[in-house]
Design a protein around this nucleic acid. Sequence first.
RNA 1: GCCGGAGUGGCGGAAUGGCAGACGCGUCGGUCUCAAAAACCGAUGAGGGCAACUUCAUGUGGGUUCGACUCCCACCUUCGGCACCA
Length: 897
Amino acid sequence: MTETTTKKRQDRFDPTIEAHWRDFWAREGIFTAGRRPGAPSRYILEMFPYPSGDLHVGHLKNYVIGDVLTRYYAIRGYDVLHPFGWDAFGLPAENAAIKAKRHPREWTYTNIAESKKSLGIAGIMYDWTREVTTCAPDYYRWNQWLFQLLYKKGLAYRAKSLVNWDPVDQTVLANEQVDSAGRSWRSGAIVEKRELEQWFFKITDYAERLLNDLDTLTEWPERVKTMQRNWIGKSEGAEVHFSTSAGDLTVFTTRPDTLWGATFMVLAPEHPLVAALTATEHKANVTACLAAARMKSEIDRTSTVKEKTGVFIGSYATNPVNGEQIPIWIADYVLMGYGTGAIMAVPAHDERDFAFARQFGLEIRVVVQPEGAQLDGATMIEWWTGDGVLVNSGPLDGIPAGKGEGQSVKAAIAWLEAQGRGKGAITYRLHDWLISRQRYWGTPIPMIHRADGTIVPVPDDQLPVVLPDISDFLPRGRSPLAAAEDWVSVADPETGEPARRDTDTMDTFVCSSWYFLRFTDAQNDREIFSKESSGTWMPVDQYIGGIEHAILHLLYARFITKVLYDEGLVPADEPFRALFTQGMVQRRVRIALETPAEGIVQFPEELRRKIELPAEAVSIDAARTALKPHGYTLEQDGATWEAVSGPVTMSKSAGNGVPVGPFVRQYGSDVARTVVLFAAPPENSMEWTDEGVAGAQRFLNRLVALFRPDSEAIADAGARYAATGARLPTDGMSPSERNLYRRLHVTIKKVTQDTEAFRFNTAIASMMELLNDLYRYRTDAGLATPVFGIVAQCYARLLAPFTPHLAEELYSWFGGEGTIYDAGWPIWDEAALIEDEIEVVLQVNSRVRGKINVPVQANEEELRTWALSNERVQREIEGKQIRRVIVVVGKLVNIVV
RNA sequence: GCCGGAGUGGCGGAAUGGCAGACGCGUCGGUCUCAAAAACCGAUGAGGGCAACUUCAUGUGGGUUCGACUCCCACCUUCGGCACCA
């Protein structure tokens, strides 16, 4: 190697240093929890992934954020728990394995090994002694234990009901896993409704607590809390019983006070009393309507919002308040899944009932009259809502409408309760959690079906029920486990008679609803985790993940934590004290176009498939026009033309992922981390670009180029740093030294505060500013000085959360021993932030008309005098009358004329 | 339709009542080089002026204030969530 290349290498950030430090951290156990017994603790956790194999830099963002916090708290002297695991069971893993034509187990473990390697070379440090893998028997054994705990507590039950069936994935799904368009969250297929007997977790028992405790989660994004509130969907009102020929018909209403205005009733088509209440002469109509409703998908049922369909079924119900006979209809705007599946219709005071009544010519009776107006149903054009007083309502006449004390709703409930025709009631939109899955790759449900039809738990000493290793695991509408006859046949644990195992597996979200608890005691083979361990670490201090889990995972995890809290196993009844939802990493997709001739391009097959484009070769202009509506632009790169998309989320399917391995080898993980952290605030999505990479690289190169040549001199300052922290006596410093010293403390403060507030982009920006100052200072001062030495020592420490490899490298150059994470975080000195002289802005009529430098202690009177005697200001105010002078000490003087 | 967030240079973004555009990218000019790259130095919101300087400018319109990106009201756009929930 020649001298020049050696020198060049020295002056640049060298990614080959990284491996050494990663080995060092792992060997020394720097990020193993419990390293600092007695120190304050922090539990930092990123949502664990399902093992997809090769990681790209987009996956990294989530982990980098957790790693930054882990290292920040480590260097501050905390005992940090930062564990990792694999959400290895479930549909995503199983479907991918099927597609790859491999056994899910083999596929999963291969991917885990690959992903783990990527995380390793990215320098994300975890306490791997606590790694959990949900598809391992030593994990799902406790998943089965948890199921049985819920069963014992009456929170797991088996019931026959109308459930969501995914025809593509061939399994049932929980409500949370079906989107508003009626599609599976995973397969995207329109779900069908099937009547099946399935296992449920009784999450509705916890609805009130899940709702109320959201208020205690002050460090959760408001957005996520709102989504959970909407999902739980609490409504307060009353149940009212109407009598019919087939017995009592109960409805739920939030407005029992409008009962006197109920002029008909509507049942959901699936309502159990429909058959009994259908009069013979209406049977044909009703059957047709039911058939039509069943044919409609969820989308159809919700897309025709305004247009109501329904039929009269030939029966009447008695309105309990006045004995009136009101007709009973069925219509699919009434949903079986909410309330009681039946409503009393009050067309004058409900928009939907109004539309229905207008369509079918039913009576509209006004029972709430606004002051000064005369509403009547016949002429009411717009459905009306608002305040008023009750009319035509017997004992409630004259009472003001409203939910408060002394208002109509409370009065109506009191009346119903006194008459025995109803009571106050609360309804939630949240339903019990359907956890059975007719799929292979999951935790077997640890229950046994006895010959007499009863169901008993597998005795604890027979857990785990190990997932059998079968080769024919493809989904086929019932669990593939049912075909494993040897496994299914089992002796009744009490009588020894032949019995059969439950052949369904559990929803993978059960696995992920408590993994953060297992991390506190991952190797415990006697219990799910010890009380002491969960007591040490829970709740998770900072949870980091994507917004896509706002309802699913986060709601389930809160539920299970509350159940375990009630059991006395966990000290906290909320699992995640603070939640951070990070934005996506995006990148443009670049597709090279074929150029059969000069000025002519042809779209390649992959692009034509994605968007409708002509197959034949076209001119550059025509290509540009064709691409534009699809969000692509045409760019020239040398001789080749490329179609370039807008930024889209990095993914395997979009083909725009930057693989971690090759990138880190070429540039270093510190560069990747800087790109991700600096480009945008972490909650925003960010675009990964070559220019961004170059910028990050430039920053690290400049650091190395500045510090490396002076590292010996800086090392001398190390002893001083150790003795005094970041502080130096400022007496005798030159102005430029004093200024640099002040800038150091400004930076320490900013980086500290920004890091704690997740403003990593501005933290890094302030370090860049300090670096620019250092370059300027070096030009001024020429050589290494005690101030420069202290700044460099602190700088290495400030880098430790963000670019850890370089930070350790600098630390060792600067004479540091052991790890920088034991070296302490710099503490800023408020006194050092104060400038001797500050610039004060002079304004005339709020417009900047000059600036003066004044001593920082200058008082109001002095500032006023200086401002008014300023030449520039005098010119401006000449001949004008001064009306007012506003002086803001340390900032500005504004003269109003 | 309802609820919530956001709107700032060519771009990502800073600034939460006091000099709008920190930091970075890009672009332009320069130094070095046979040349290029890299690196370094300088410029860079728009308009006007030879210049000192000046006008306009944070989605739109209004308001509060000596002073508004920042606070208040209305609207527009956009992103996200919910959506026949009785």
